[in-house]
Design a protein around this nucleic acid. Structure first.
Length: 290
DNA sequence: ACCCAGGCGGGCG
DNA sequence: CGCCCGCATGGG
């Protein structure tokens, strides 16, 4: 069929999704004018272009293996989620309502566990621009060539943990990773030789998070990011500086709260979709603060 | 020049 | 436990 390369969407906004600082978007290439995203998987180079509006649209996918690419896009953007139900569950107040109204259609993406781990180790005590820079440098230096039918390189995909376990701290310093360089090498070694990220998919959220915390360089916040965007645990609620500030400002009259209390607050208020709520609060705070 | 960034590990009390 | 500090690097 002619339309095999098209995915129908409803309540989907690619721009908000891509611009909200998620792993796919750290190493993918997004053209805002065309509303087109290009990214490499380990086996293909996918171009996905959005047509239509948030309420109703379609995604046109180009790749060597189109059916697999379609499946990848659908999974990454979580297109089969009942997003309206999720909005109903998280819209507890005007703060969230405004964020949802502004960024309706923004999805929490579902990414490869190792890629997510790598991206969020890099993210710590860093800004989005530099996360993207470092990720791109690692992609350039250690990425795996993705070939077309004629054995010609189309792109590079992010290196596996095995590949990065062969790298040295110095190599990663050259990529701009700074003091995180040693965390990356250690995590790559650990996830290659002692700890299989791909066997954790069936764990419940709390067990998963405790497992992830055994990786050096992964603390409370990064573990939640990995659980949320690498494993799809929507109840995971990463608390970074933006979320902490925005919660304190809007829900605690600017009073300082500790991380533990904020986790408790988020769990009680947004429950199993706390991470979904978090993405809206984060994106709003990051773009609009001051 | 100074401050900040999707925090974390380690050390100390 | 909880708290506090140093940490690499580039952009505003």
């Amino acid at each position: 069929m002619k339309n095999q390369d098209v995915l129908q969407t409803s309540v989907f906004n690619m721009q908000h999704t891509v611009e909200s600082a998620q792993p796919l978007t750290f190493y993918g290439d997004y053209d805002k004018a065309k509303n087109e995203l290009r990214y490499a998987t380990s086996k293909d180079f996918i171009t996905v272009k959005f047509y239509g509006n948030t309420t109703k649209g379609r995604l046109k996918v180009k790749a060597i293996n189109k059916s697999k690419a379609i499946a990848d896009v659908s999974k990454r953007f979580r297109l089969s989620d009942n997003i309206n139900k999720m909005y109903d569950e998280i819209t507890t107040d005007s703060i969230i309502a405004n964020a949802v109204s502004k960024y309706r259609g923004m999805r929490v993406t579902l990414n490869d566990p190792w890629e997510t781990t790598l991206c969020f180790i890099i993210s710590q005590f860093n800004n989005v621009k530099r996360i993207r820079l470092i990720t791109r440098n690692i992609l350039e230096s250690f990425g795996v060539a993705v070939l077309d039918e004629n054995e010609k390189q189309m792109a590079k995909s992010l290196p596996t943990s095995r590949i990065l376990s062969e790298a040295t701290e110095k190599d990663l310093l050259r990529c701009g990773a700074g003091y995180r360089a040693k965390y990356i090498v250690e995590a790559a070694n650990y996830c290659t030789n002692n700890f299989d990220l791909y066997k954790l998919r069936n764990l419940d959220y709390h067990t998963l998070k405790n497992e992830l915390l055994t990786i050096k360089g992964v603390g409370d916040k990064v573990a939640d990011c990995i659980a949320l965007m690498g494993y799809g645990k929507l109840e995971a609620f990463p608390i970074d500086v933006w979320i902490k500030r925005t919660l304190e400002r809007h829900y605690f009259k600017n009073r300082k709260k500790n991380i533990k209390d904020l986790h408790k607050f988020a769990e009680e208020r947004w429950g199993k979709y706390a991470g979904f709520a978090q993405q809206y609060l984060f994106h709003t705070a990051r773009l609009k603060w001051i």
